[in-house]
Design a protein around this nucleic acid. Structure first.
Lengths: 413, 413
DNA sequence: GTGTATTGTTATTCAAACGAACTATATCAG
DNA sequence: CTGATATAGTTCGTTTGAATAACAATACAC
């Protein structure tokens, strides 16, 4: 039940029904392809005659195509319809501190080429590198170059203002208030979309994975890596907040005597669960340091200390100190997830990040901590799903940024 | 940008445009009444001819009526249109531990009669009392009785499942899993709506106060009383969560060494800011107890201790101990609001409850604590608005529960 | 080949926005 | 008092598009 906004309402015109229904047909074809007109008519509970002009328009606009016929027990064979992806490319870029990635994908999110590079130190240098790499990617893989490229999705490790395409602040890169969308769009010459990493991951799940909203109206995507980010999807929409800061669960203080955080305060959730803290826990446990850890996050990595992937490997091979570090982190993750459950109460939570590779070790302490800190006390009400390939979802999110507007519901009312 | 749900989508039919536009017209009339057809046409950017049939339907269905003509500089005088409230009543009931209230209102939320009563100890007894009082209210004030009553809104101090009308759990009343909507509807014989108190308050602001969403897309309603509840409104919709527990910021642990909470844990936001804690703070300060308060919430009220209204009065008259108690509570409220800003990032936060009567004392420490705990560090980005009359908004919310469906946007797409 | 089931198209009807012309009613200038 | 002008509201023909039914196309069973 939505209240009509008396300033921004949208009147229905005489072409509104067709526009609305065309979008619905496109979404159904995407989800159930290959699918015939007759099957669509059954799913939509309309006569087949209603579909003929709708499908014709989608075919003529190039959104879908007829892909031969299928066999049936008897009667005329149905013509199957599919979403068209050939010749419709998207460039996806995932910018991070240290290493960045760029990929060529089709509109459905199938990656066709992928390369990574050192992240430049300034936005201007980044724009240059992107300009060069994008044109090379298009030249080598795409016949018609820019024309068949639908857009460029740019995912950034920081806060983004989606309305004007500005990067508000990226702490690790040290970049602040930069009109990156315009800069990149001008240099590359392709329509550019820009978003923060956790929101992009939620975008990828929402728009390119039908599973995400199958049995559930809302979900959260929690990425646990160098920092902690949360993307929230509610009723098919991504929550951004009035000032683009929604989902900042990472800096909720969970333990006033906890380790110091980049934000200057103590015991933020991020400081309790980020990779460097997990590594510190491992080092402390392995070297038999004092029982009470004095964790100071973000310090230069200890010389000789393993990275998070190595800690995960050692834990999976049974090394006790590593297992202990992971289970401690898992419990802290669970406490934070409880926070998300209490405040947004999503139906599902995806947890992404390097340590989820060892999910079999994390699951039990995580769920226990979650149960102890939620109102219901029942950790099984909310599905928690591990998602190891955070990099993949950031790139997929970049693709989703470009393709989502094609499938979005028409705003009416 | 909303993703179309491929299971629950709504096709547009040939009557959809009219249904959509009729709702828009109704909302515009409600907001700008009295208003002429010509003025509506200008606001909607359509010809006057489009409005004639829309307005005719609304008049014929009794939703609006023509209220004379207005003067203009020259030309034919416009016929003014108004939403019809005469002969359209709503019963509002606000159930709390201790005292409950019931009121007769028109559909616009103007209260016509109001009475309060001791809350019965069992749901069955409550249903009986409601049955008696409702029929008496209708007999004395409403000419045609039940027929001109549009519905009964029931606001409860606990978790409610809106889909089936069950009260899931009301901690203070000790009621659990009761099909209250059916029980009340059967006894009273009026269509019944049921909701939790914080959500009802957000409902009241969203549906019956045009100010709430004027310059802002989202807001939170925070009620600070015996407990703490938060209702969240986002793009014209109230957020409920997958299992009806969204907005439970009250039990986020803010201070692991804080006072014990009803939920069994320590240092929940609710335990830090609820009225009984503020009273404890006052008693400790006034009697010169130990510097470190050992607050134990929910204990039987100290013999001779003042209630919260008295503490507020004493603070406003300048008593230092009371002022100190209020400012301490204000700082804790600010910390919790920072949590809401970081995670939900609303454009505005309404704070309701007895202590907001002393807003001039609360504002400064509250904003300071808020600024210290938000990502942006700027407490002025989010409007914080005091709202003293919590009781009024709970009743108004009960009215809104009944009238909202009349004005809601048509679900399409 | 004939009967039947299934798919897809076409023509007709009905609902409603759109646009222009029309009526009604006011003020103002002379 | 009369005509010019401005504004409000209605009516009617046009266009768009869903709803319905009839029809053509194509398969299989016998």
């Amino acid at each position: 039940m939505r209240k009509i906004n008396t300033r921004t309402f949208r009147l229905a015109t005489r072409s509104t029904p067709r526009d609305v229904n065309r979008r619905i047909v496109l979404n159904l074809i995407r989800e159930y392809q290959p699918i015939s007109r007759a099957e669509l008519a059954r799913r939509m509970k309309v006569r087949r005659g209603t579909l003929t002009p709708l499908v014709r328009e989608l075919v003529e606009s190039g959104s879908i195509f007829e892909k031969g016929t299928a066999a049936t027990a008897r009667g005329r064979r149905p013509t199957m319809l599919c979403v068209r992806t050939r010749g419709r490319y998207v460039i996806a870029a995932d910018i991070r501190w240290g290493k960045s990635a760029i990929a060529l994908s089709d509109v459905a999110g199938r990656m066709l080429a992928h390369e990574s590079f050192e992240t430049p130190l300034t936005p201007e240098a980044l724009v240059d590198v992107l300009g060069m790499r994008v044109s090379k990617l298009l030249q080598t893989h795409v016949p018609h170059g820019k024309e068949s490229c639908q857009g460029l999705g740019l995912v950034l490790p920081g806060m983004v203002d989606r309305t004007n395409g500005h990067l508000i602040y990226a702490p690790r890169l040290g970049w602040r208030d930069i009109d990156l969308r315009t800069m990149v769009a001008q240099r590359v010459g392709i329509k550019t979309y820009i978003e923060s990493a956790p929101i992009a991951c939620a975008f990828a799940r929402l728009w390119l994975e039908p599973e995400a909203t199958r049995s559930v109206n809302s979900f959260a995507y929690v990425s646990v890596s160098e920092g902690v980010g949360v993307g929230l999807a509610l009723n098919g929409e991504i929550l951004r907040g009035e000032h683009h800061t929604a989902g900042e669960f990472g800096h909720v203080p969970l333990d006033s005597s906890g380790p110091e955080c980049v934000c200057g305060r103590r015991g933020c959730w991020e400081a309790l669960v980020c990779n460097s803290t997990t590594v510190e826990r491992y080092v402390a446990a392995a070297t038999g340091s004092a029982a009470r850890l004095d964790l100071r996050v973000r310090r230069a990595r200890r010389p000789g200390a393993p990275d998070i992937e190595e800690v995960v490997r050692r834990a999976r091979s049974g090394e006790l100190a590593a297992v202990r570090a992971l289970t401690e982190t898992a419990a802290e993750i669970g406490r934070g997830l409880a926070l998300i459950v209490n405040t947004f109460n999503p139906g599902r939570i995806y947890v992404g990040g390097e340590i989820t590779e060892a999910w079999e070790l994390l699951e039990r302490p995580l769920r226990e901590a979650m149960g102890n800190n939620t109102i219901s006390g029942n950790p099984d009400l909310t599905h928690v799903v591990p998602d190891g390939s955070l990099q993949h979802y950031r790139l997929l999110g970049a693709v989703a940024l470009v393709t989502a507007p094609t499938y979005a519901a028409l705003a009416v009312g």
